[in-house]
Design a protein around this nucleic acid. Structure first.
Lengths: 343, 343
DNA sequence: TGCCTTGAGTAAAACGTTTTAATGCGCGAC
DNA sequence: GTCGCGCATTAAAACGTTTTACTCAAGGCA
């Protein structure tokens, strides 16, 4: 018969064994239409004896739904993952995977690689969570072209051709910058430098705007250095040494990108500056790097697990065709003060 | 025409525009059979103008291949993920995702939830990487039933009904235990306690065997405490307080599970013991918890990124039907000595 | 020349579901 | 008593690809 060899039983086999048609089996499975309780029982019985498991590919082809969402970011791996591959992306992915399950969906991890088109070529999804996209983000363009629903974590870049209509979960860039700057000022810092990446992300531009405004207001000459994200920790190291040579009176450095912060700390050590006594350092993402550094880095708890849960729910609503608001307030960030900025 | 509205172009549309049959388009796409260069050019042209993207669900249904692998572990979330959702699982997932891409495959993350059957219900995969399965591991059973190729990270439990025939990447449990025990002894510890989980995993039983042997050899009375994994940090906290009350002369605690180590550290603080002066503490996984603790925990670098890369390649070979050896030597673990065990 | 091989191409089948349109049946309302 | 309606059920269509079996023409070899 059919179930002798390695062939998996199909709905056809179940139907035959239960003495009904394929359609009825399908209805019993999905519960979409009424099925007589007695018939349903026979079908369940047949499914059990045959060990039937639905062929997901066939179901997906027919329905057009994949029951899959993806998480991705265009941030280069040098920054977003780092040597131990942890961080931002993974923290969000873990939370999203758990919450996707509530919607009978799996989560696929799209790794940050050079060519987004390659990364997406073999991934089918009902929707995507895109983390902190940059201007002209390749992932956003590809997803838009495919018509995939998208929820952004962090503010989408205003000028992206995909339109400013993407829903997003606010990561509170303004409040984050203010928390860190006010903390530094409270701790007595007066010459605060800012080290940013060169990519065009809302997080960076917002941070710079706030920084410039605060410095202007307090009569502090601003000092902003930009380092390409691809150069990672080493790039920040070089930049910081350069900064310390040219601006020896700097007494605080604001380094939002944690990979850069690690480089900055190393540069400070090599330049013989003591943290926090000579120079105070703060960063944004409170991950492995921030906590492992000595002294440990003051950072921001972004509550990424809650953010990811929120984004997942929004995405599911969007996929289901519900109306969702364009901007959703995520949990408010909170300061995690550590040894790098206070005595 | 067809491409007026929201309907995605299909191979049929491409064929029509290029003036060939569907089969030829398919051949041109897969390169499986010869296609005249001039014809191929016309097809490429048609694909470009139509913006054709293959329907993966249809392809998968026809070929039976999903170009997807999954990563999963049955370790409860309380231990494997923790409050910030990082750790072991995520570190492996990140590396596997990157390397899966080399084989045109996506990686789906199966979250550690109570019911593995639910977690797998909507996931189709060509193969799976299972992390440190326990005896009667539900994931292994389900995967075996579906006939999915599996590679295990860490030694599979000997008695699993799925058979001892599963290929696995060695995490060197013996060497890991020896590294930590010899380090403790070198540091002068003489009364070493061991805190383990209650689940039946090879890592635990191997660790205990080595521990017992070493203690016996040195005439040290062994002291082993087992805490259910589901109780997480708090369970270990209680167990450690109990341990310190009943065995006040303990001068070192070996806590392989990092979530437990966090609880043990808290118990030591609450009992007024100084680490490392009064009691030395070591753990296994060198993750966020180990590094964030004060003093930071001595741990083992398992080189999980290399392990995951290895496992991914093995799995891909297995899927491709190649012969692979049953046990593969992973990279050797190395000691990361920190303040929790040395002065 | 005749025969066999090769290579490019095609029409149609096949994959396993869900959905659609149709069928038969029992039942209450007229 | 019949009409119409709702319900459970069915046969067949549809989803978009890859694969199979076949045709046709060109070319090599005896």
């Amino acid at each position: 018969m059919d179930n002798t060899a390695g062939k998996r039983p199909t709905v056809k086999d179940v139907a035959r064994l239960a003495g009904v048609s394929q359609g009825t089996v399908s209805n019993a499975l999905s519960g979409m239409r009424g099925v007589d309780p007695e018939t349903r029982q026979r079908i369940d019985q047949a499914i059990a004896t045959l060990g039937y498991v639905p062929n997901l590919a066939a179901r997906r082809m027919r329905t057009g739904l994949t029951n899959t969402i993806a998480v991705m970011t265009s941030m280069p791996a040098a920054v977003s993952a780092g040597s131990s591959r942890l961080g931002f992306l993974m923290e969000i992915a873990a939370s999203a995977a758990i919450h996707a399950l509530d919607y009978n969906s799996a989560l696929v991890l799209v790794p940050p690689v050079a060519d987004p088109a390659v990364a997406l070529r073999h991934v089918a999804m009902d929707g995507a969570i895109v983390i902190e996209p940059q201007r002209d983000d390749a992932f956003l363009s590809l997803l838009k072209h495919r018509g995939v629903p998208v929820v952004v974590i962090g503010e989408p870049p205003a000028s992206h051709p995909s339109g400013g209509d993407l829903p997003w979960v606010d990561l509170h860039y303004t409040r984050t910058a203010e928390l860190l700057l006010s903390h530094l000022l409270e701790q007595g810092a007066r010459r605060i430098a800012l080290i940013l990446g060169t990519s065009s992300r809302a997080s960076q531009s917002t941070t710079e705007v706030i920084y410039q405004a605060w410095m202007l207001l307090r009569g502090i000459p601003p000092c902003v250095i930009r380092v390409p994200e691809t150069e990672g920790e080493e790039g920040a190291y070089q930049a910081t040494r350069y900064l310390l040579t040219n601006n020896p009176d700097v007494d605080a450095i604001f380094v939002p990108v944690d990979a850069f912060a690690t480089g900055a700390m190393r540069a400070l050590r090599d330049e013989g500056r003591t943290v926090p006594d000579d120079v105070r350092v703060v960063t944004r993402y409170d991950g492995l790097r921030a906590r492992e550094e000595r002294p440990a880095l003051t950072a921001i708890d972004l509550h990424l697990d809650q953010v990811a849960a929120l984004a997942t729910r929004l995405l599911m609503d969007l996929i289901a065709g519900k109306e969702i608001q364009q901007v959703t307030e995520g949990p408010l960030p909170s300061l995690v003060a550590r040894g790098s900025s206070q005595d």
